[in-house]
Write a protein that binds this DNA or RNA. Structure first.
Length: 582
DNA sequence: GTAGGGTTAG
């Protein structure tokens, strides 16, 4: 029995290998390659390709397509294209599949134009209009950040009835629109699908729901989620994770937790991501206790905390200034062989800097370098701020130079910290010179940087420079924010230009920028300093009516100006109202 | 088992 079955196998092997040797070898070897992993995979595929190319007669194009598809999946797009070139050089005719695979490769290499050139080839060779071709090109435009051209092509295809769009085509365009933040258009297209014959599935809903959440339109996202469910489309873990994330970003942690219960009721199991979202939200919100409970819950369910989970906890403790607890977490994660990354270290460095433990922060920075981790703009920014705040402006400048030498691009935040620190150390001219040397429009037109420099010039006793900067900002057509106005109000006050200061408070409101607590505190405090008590009262009442409280510095100026007991005083009435309220 | 998309966590 045993012998007979072995014989059968041998006979079958023999039969296949004589009848169609190339097919047999090819299919086996392709299967081996598909399941293979490791460094030689590409070389093995190329080896097989060479053998195929040398075979007479050549194998069918379908086999070449199969092999090259494998190479494309490994992301070796240029290699794939050169293989097709070899095929053509050997005079082996290609087919529509081969062209579509080539178009995809060009698109992935950011050569959409070559893709469109191949579309012309398709027409010349008389192939029919093909959905896969168009979908590949649409996707190519999307990954090249040319979403609007993708939308135009999509419209043209529909208008000229060149093809009947399918779920892939709609999905590609919807994803593209979401990617560039045109969520409304994506939603419109989704609604268009719902009305037509090609109904959207959960992936298309997910794209729009996630995009709405990122646009802080969580309630719209929840609405869409409800509509989707009503239409019988079943939400998956990605739908729920997006919604939970959106709710958390909006400070709606309780609803997020309820959503977690809902998803379980619906039979969708939360993943580690789900818990990481919650852990992170709890930490950012200040309740590390809840975060720890969430981690325990995820472990209880057999889900594994990862570097993101531990980093969130560390960040939570650092934000609360509980550095000992943060250190304990880092020990615990190391024990579990989870390697802290730059984000983890950034939290710790930031924590130490905020606690003025600059030595520890610097030591940690050295450790990062020794470990071969690359500090990013956040690392440098935190440490810069720490150095300035610890009264080490020279070390800060050195670090900034170091950052530039290492090729780490400073962000607006970095420059803000740097300018602020320099101005605090009477170096506003240097800061200004550096600002003038900035190349990017984002930096040159950053209202935040202008505000820091205006305040810096004021601090350095150069009010005229401050006023020039404010004029420059306005003439550039930039929109000052409440901070900018407040800082300028302070400049005017300090220069005794009280009329201009008061004007600016009214001006900013007209320009759609409501004065905030800082603005009112500045104007009230400065007016009191100049003994303009009646004017100060007007703004004081206004600020209280708008729900803002005088800060410590304002109170210090306020209290000495309240007349003795018995004398009628509006100021005292205001203060009494305040103190009774609290 | 020849081609096209699919996104959630710091």
């Amino acid at each position: 029995m045993k012998v007979r079955s072995m014989n059968c196998t041998r006979i079958r092997l023999l039969y296949y290998s004589t009848a169609s040797p190339s097919t047999f070898h090819f299919n086996q070897r392709l299967l081996l390659l598909k399941n293979a992993s490791g460094a030689t995979k590409l070389d093995d595929a190329l080896q097989l390709f060479d053998e195929m190319l040398q075979r007479q007669p050549p194998p069918p194009i379908i086999q070449f397509n199969q092999l090259i598809t494998l190479i494309v999946k490994m992301k070796h797009y240029s290699t794939a294209l050169s293989l097709y070139n070899n095929i053509k050089l050997m005079g082996i005719p290609t087919d529509l599949y081969a062209i579509n695979i080539s178009i995809n490769c060009h698109c992935r290499l950011n050569q959409v134009a070559y893709g469109f050139a191949l579309l012309a080839t398709i027409f010349k060779q008389g192939h029919p209009h093909d959905l896969a071709t168009y979908n590949t090109l649409l996707h190519g435009l999307v990954i090249a950040d040319r979403v609007f051209e993708a939308v135009e092509l999509f419209k043209k295809l529909l208008r000229d009835k060149l093809c009947d769009p399918d779920q892939v085509m709609y999905g590609t365009v919807i994803n593209g629109l979401c990617k560039v933040g045109h969520t409304r258009k994506a939603l419109e297209l989704l609604n268009f699908m719902e009305a037509g014959s090609c109904k959207p599935c959960v992936e298309q809903y997910n794209a729009v729901i996630d995009s709405l959440c990122k646009d802080k339109m969580v309630d719209h996202a929840l609405e869409l989620f409800t509509n989707m469910t009503k239409k019988g489309v079943v939400a998956d873990v990605i739908t729920y994770n997006s919604l939970i994330h959106g709710l958390c970003n909006f400070g709606r942690e309780m609803e997020a937790v309820k959503m977690l219960r809902d998803m379980e009721d619906e039979g969708v199991s939360p993943t580690a991501e789900t818990f990481n979202i919650l852990v992170n939200a709890f930490c950012k919100q200040g309740s590390v206790k809840d975060a720890v409970l969430a981690v325990q819950e995820m472990v209880r369910r057999g889900l594994h905390p990862c570097v993101i989970t531990y980093s969130a906890l560390i960040d939570g403790y650092c934000l609360r200034g509980e550095m000992n607890e943060a250190e304990k977490v880092i020990d615990r994660m190391m024990e579990r062989d989870i390697v802290p990354d730059i984000v983890t270290y950034n939290s710790l460095i930031n924590g130490y800097c905020k606690k003025k433990q600059i030595a520890k922060a610097t030591r940690l920075f050295q450790e990062i370098l020794a470990k071969g981790l690359i500090p990013n703009a956040i690392t440098y920014s935190s440490l810069l701020q720490g150095l300035f705040e610890s009264g080490k402006p020279a070390a800060a400048r050195e670090l900034f130079n170091d950052m530039q030498e290492k090729g780490e691009a400073p962000t607006v935040l970095t420059y803000g910290i740097l300018f602020h620190g320099m101005c605090k150390n009477s170096q506003c001219s240097d800061a200004l010179a550096l600002f003038r040397s900035l190349g990017s429009d984002e930096m040159k037109n950053g209202v935040g940087l202008y505000t820091i420099l205006i305040d810096g010039c004021r601090r350095c006793g150069k009010p005229n420079l401050a006023m020039d900067l404010f004029d420059e900002l306005l003439s550039k057509g930039l929109k000052p924010d409440a901070r900018t106005y407040s800082v300028m109000i302070r400049v005017y006050c300090e220069e005794g230009l009280l009329v201009k200061a008061k004007e600016l408070v009214r001006n900013m409101e007209e320009n759609g920028c409501l004065p905030n607590s800082f603005t009112y505190n500045v104007i009230v405090r400065e007016l009191l300093k100049k003994n303009e008590c009646q004017e100060a009262e007007v703004f004081l009442e206004e600020m209280i009516n708008r729900g803002f409280m005088p800060d410590h510095a304002t109170f210090e100026n306020l209290l000495p100006r309240i007349p003795n007991v018995g004398k009628a005083s509006r100021l005292r009435t205001i203060i009494q109202k305040l103190t009774n309220g609290s």
